[in-house]
């Protein structure tokens, strides 16, 4: 079972988060202040840490920095207070792997935890040159995309979008994740820009085929997978 440690001082928020993550199939340990969080992180063999920045006593950035200085490479997702713009850069600088702003949507956090865990698992397997899902094939070197042997013509951005979805196949990705990773924008426009790009991509990869691969998960985001 995948083990998570959540260091978060707001007990009510931490409790709801724990319930949601346990329901999603994770084993979850909680710590409510920085000192104890640090001790638990040092003592445990967690697969991922979720660390709030604002903690009583020792703040989350200092906890993470200490852990990194000790050579611990467990992936860390940072939670920050609303809108502190610099926290993202600061958090990633001390060794955070991803970053979510409070108040967050549970689904956003869950999707990012899953993406991080997957990134760690695929680490070291060498650079991939070919991505495959059912009869959809993506050659990253020749930039050739085919489905059922039939060539699909994609714009450069559509290629990056599909590549990201393929790398996270079977897993929900949110609009914010797509904006950050495919377009490199760290803010959410008011217009549904991502949705329209997704529906264009869907036209190209799904329209003339019997089984759709790109699915909308209502209220959460998108998922690329062979079954509905």
């Amino acid at each position: 079972m995948v083990k998570l440690l959540i260091i978060e001082d707001d007990e009510a928020a931490a409790g709801s988060l724990k319930r949601g993550l346990v329901e999603a199939g994770y084993a979850v340990e909680l710590a409510h202040d920085g000192e104890r969080g640090l001790q638990q992180a040092q003592a445990g063999d967690h697969d991922l840490w979720v660390i709030d920045i604002m903690l009583p006593g020792r703040d989350g950035l200092s906890v993470l920095k200490t852990l990194r200085d000790q050579g611990r490479r467990t992936p860390a997702l940072i939670l920050s207070a609303l809108g502190k713009v610099d926290d993202r850069v600061e958090g990633l600088r001390v060794g955070g792997d991803d970053y979510v702003v409070k108040p967050y949507a549970f689904d956003e956090l869950l999707a990012r935890i899953e993406a991080l865990l997957r990134r760690v698992r695929s680490f070291g397997s060498g650079p991939e040159t070919m991505l495959e899902l059912a009869d959809l094939k993506m050659d990253l070197l020749s930039r050739n995309v085919t489905r059922g042997g039939q060539e699909i013509d994609l714009q450069p951005r559509e290629f990056r979008l599909l590549e990201y979805l393929m790398r996270h196949a079977g897993q929900v990705v949110t609009r914010t994740m797509l904006l950050e990773n495919v377009w490199e924008y760290f803010f959410d426009p008011q217009t549904n820009v991502v949705d329209v790009h997704i529906s264009r991509l869907r036209q190209k990869i799904d329209k003339s085929f019997a089984t759709p691969l790109l699915h909308t998960v209502r209220g959460r985001g998108y998922i690329l997978r062979p079954e509905a």
């Binding site: 377009w183 820009v193 329209v196 790009h197």
Partner: peptide, 28 residues
């Protein structure tokens, strides 16, 4: 108090990118 991270930005490229991002929504 918002930190501004100034670097040389290819403004032409950025604007083309943003137009590309918004064109499908505009057409819709």
């Amino acid at each position: 108090v918002m930190r501004v991270r100034k670097k040389t930005v290819d403004l032409s490229g950025l604007l083309e990118e943003l137009i590309e991002l918004y064109i499908p929504s505009a057409e819709e």
